[in-house]
Structure formats: C-alpha cells, structure tokens
C-alpha cells in the first residue's frame, strides 16, 4: 500500500508534466526567454502547483504524522550557505542550456530515449560525483 501511494504520486506528477507542456524542452526555453519571444504559459504550472501545495500542506501537516511514517520529514535549515547558492547557479546554467530539469528529464527519457538519455546519464554521474565529493565545498 505504501508503495502504491508513492507510485500513484509519481504517475500524477508525470501526468502534470506532460499535460502542462513542461515535458517539452523547447517550451521551457520559450518560458525562460524573458527577453525574447516570451511564452508565459509555464508560469501557470508553478502557480497551479504552489496553489495546491500551499493549501494542501496546511491541511496535511496539522494531522501530526503521515499515513505510513512516524513523522513528517521536512527540511529545517534556514541558513543561506555557499553550496546552496553555487548549486542553484550550476543548476540554472544547465537548465537554461537545454531546457531540461530532473522531473521532465526522467519522464521524457521514456519518450525520447536517445537525446534525453544522454542528459540523464550525465545527470546521474553528476549527482553521484556530488554525493561523493560535494561535502568538501
């Protein structure tokens, strides 16, 4: 049952990425092209998602504990440190270069395995390297 909920969350998330157009890197680049032919539609993806999480989390969190775990696992850190800033800069650079972030890449790999497969392979290597050596930054 526990796995079914995680699976269904993955299905709904991925469906949202496909329906919204987030899955298409060209559309994402159009959204990021603020100073060019700006396609503002994807702002409504983040807007719609945050609208639901804003109210949804306020309904769920006061329940005290999640369905299958003893407690909620929420990040508690509030400090702005160098890895956070540097990481966000590197991520933004990679995102802007081809229009892929991790969610759409992992859904899109099923539909365009050759090109997005290369991106995902490199992403996994980058993640593994950062997990091993990232603590030294």
């Amino acid at each position: 049952m526990k796995h079914l909920f995680a699976f269904v969350a993955g299905v709904i998330f991925s469906l949202g990425l496909i329906v919204s157009g987030m899955i298409n890197p060209a559309k994402v680049i159009g959204f990021l092209d603020l100073f060019g032919a700006w396609d503002a539609s994807l702002a409504f993806v983040m807007g719609g998602a945050v609208l639901v999480t804003f109210f949804g989390f306020r309904f769920v969190l006061p329940r005290g504990r999640p369905l299958f775990e003893a407690q909620f696992s929420l990040p508690t850190r509030q400090d702005i440190d160098m890895p956070l800033v540097l990481g966000a800069v590197l991520f933004g650079l990679g995102w802007g270069l081809v229009g892929l972030c991790p969610g759409p890449a992992l859904t899109g790999i099923v539909l365009a395995p050759a090109s997005i497969g290369l991106f995902v392979g490199a992403m996994l290597i980058g993640m593994a390297l950062a997990r091993r050596f990232g603590g030294k930054i």
Partner: peptide, 19 residues
C-alpha cells in the same frame, strides 16, 4: 499549464500525506 500545475501540486500533497 494550469491543469498540469494543479496535478503536480496534488502529487506533492499526496506524497506528503502518505510518506
């Protein structure tokens, strides 16, 4: 885009609610 965004939000709330 709005419908897709709402779905993404529902997935996030479902994962928070269950796990």
């Amino acid at each position: 885009a709005t419908i897709g965004g709402l779905l993404i939000g529902v997935a996030a709330v479902l994962l928070m609610y269950s796990h």
